[in-house]
Simulated scan of single mutants.
Amino acid sequence: MSNSSLLDRFAALDSAAVSDALDQLGLPAGVGGIRPVWGPAAVLGFAVTMALEPRAEGSAGAHIATTAVERSDDRSVIVVDNQGRTDVSCWGGILSLGAARRGVRGVVADGVCRDVAEARELGFPVFSRGSIPATARGRLRQRSTGEPVSVAGLTVEQGDVVVADETGLAVVPRARAEEVAEVAAAIVARERAIADEVRAGAPLSQAMHDARLAGDKEPAR
């Protein structure tokens, strides 16, 4: 399956459905705490990973995130591991501009960002633990790009499928993505059928029994 076709399959799914599918397959479920910093937003794409660390003496190297932006395309979501720090920004307005111009779909940061208004004006989705004006200059440096990172306790590898929305974040290992998409689509179809019954007047206890929500076959009648 092509990368575009795979993303098309996930486009109809939200983080909750993907998390349920991950659960069903014994993979790490979705997490909370990382949310859009402006307005309702959702983002879906293949991870381009980047890890940061505290700045030490010596050269700072390339400006943080620039190499990740330059390796990204219109199917990418940049994933930033800043170890959950909330005392210094790990993403800002010029980075949002550069990423938006490359067609990047958004950024997911285990940390905080700044220049929220600039991201909003660009229509560029930024997910993080919040915002702060404190600059990364002199405080952070880039440790790696394209290597596995940890975000809110989830391991994210380059090319994994990232699904983030107002509910939370789910990360799908690339090798299991087609399987997860198939299971999640079945979950969505089942829950829509249950919702239709509730709207039609069925009692919740009848429509939402555990076996049905789990996808078990209905008992013989």
Rank of each mutant, 00 (worst) to 15 (best):
A177Q: 00
A177E: 00
R85M: 00
E178P: 00
A170M: 04
V183A: 13
N82L: 06
G103M: 12
G153L: 08
L122A: 09
I132H: 14
D160Y: 02
A152W: 06
L169Y: 00
V188R: 13
E147I: 03
V107T: 03
S128G: 12
C113W: 01
V108L: 06
V79P: 01
T155C: 10
L169R: 02
E178Q: 02
D160W: 01
R105D: 08
T155Q: 14
V77R: 00
G84P: 07
G153T: 09
G93Q: 10
W91G: 01
R85H: 03
V163M: 09
R174T: 00
G98D: 09
D196T: 12
L97E: 14
R129P: 03
S128H: 03
L97V: 13
G103A: 11
R176D: 05
E179S: 11
D196I: 05
R199T: 09
S131N: 13
G138D: 11
A134R: 14
L122Y: 08
S89D: 14
D165R: 08
R199G: 11
V80H: 05
P173N: 04
D160A: 06
P125Q: 07
G146T: 05
E197Q: 12
A119G: 14
T135E: 14
G153F: 06
P173V: 01
V80M: 09
V88F: 07
A175G: 12
R174N: 01
E178W: 00
D110N: 12
R139H: 15
R143G: 05
S96W: 00
G123T: 11
A136Y: 15
T155F: 04
E118V: 15
I78M: 04
E166V: 12
T135P: 14
R101A: 15
E121S: 14
D115V: 07
T86R: 13
P133E: 15
R192M: 09
A189S: 14
G168N: 07
I194D: 10
G168S: 06
G84V: 06
D87G: 13
